[in-house]
Amino acid sequence: MTTSTPTAGETPGGAAADDAAIKGTQPSKSAPDDRRGSPLVRGVVLAMCLVWTIPTIGLLVSSFRTRTAVTGSGWWTVLASPLDFTQWTVQNYGDVLFNSGMGQSFINTAIVTIPATVIPITAAAFAAYAFSWMRFPGREMLFVLFVGLLVVPTQITFIPLLQRFGNLGITGTFLSVWLAHTGFGMPLAVYLLRNYMGSLPREVIESAKVDGASEFQTFTRLILPLSAPALAAFAIFQFLWVWNDFIHALVFLGALPDVKVMTVNLAELIGQRGQDWHLLTAGAFVTMIMPMIVFFSLQRFFVRGMTAGSVKG
């Protein structure tokens, strides 16, 4: 799979190549025989990795320190005597999880995020199938609409959407954020999925039709499973975006304990006194756990799904 690798965009069969993009199992461009890299290369990569991890390590270390310690000395000072357990505390996590409503917020965030990820995927998958494999008047014009909407700033909808939701009596409910995020995520979903589905080989679809499958069956039995990488890629995007979103949740849901999401809770940990850095660090970590899990379990699909139709070598 070196020189003759098909481009990712054209066949899902090129998947292995894309996996390799993350896992690095594919032979390299520069020195196919020996991939240990010169000391300079190794040094630069190591330096970059340090720059990329040290800030997060600082947060992690700080989250186990007392309030006075966090504001009194740098987190790295503990590295001088890491085994001095008197300086460590799990109190911050206890406070965040049990006294600040973060547990309920975790559930709320999940209630917001899962449907806000699945609903746009469902609608977009049907639309992308139609755009890829059905012929109908207005097809290209409608698709261009989605491509154009990719760049529209979502803030533009705030006040009018709030007012319409108000008329419907659904502000402050999960339904309102599901709908809003479905709208905001739809252009990217349709765009990514269409690019991917459009690159599936025509023969597969033709043969299914010969076998007498309806459009619906072809779609659910054949196209959906084949499109898993693109579905996963968009799912990661949308999941991270909704899970980490602060402003839309604040505006459409508010801060009542029943609906408050984690980012809103986190922003509140800064508190009126402005000074609960120790809680903020633990809170930040708690909010990061779920996205990390989703991210690492789905990342192998990510490149394959993202690059269809765009990476043409």
């Binding site: 049907f126 979502t154 909808t157 709908l179 709208g183 739809m186 252009p187």
Partner: peptide
């Protein structure tokens, strides 16, 4: 097939 997607972007964007 495309209706719901179109409706959503028209209504919410």
């Amino acid at each position: 097939f495309i209706g719901p997607a179109i409706f959503v972007v028209l209504a919410f964007l």
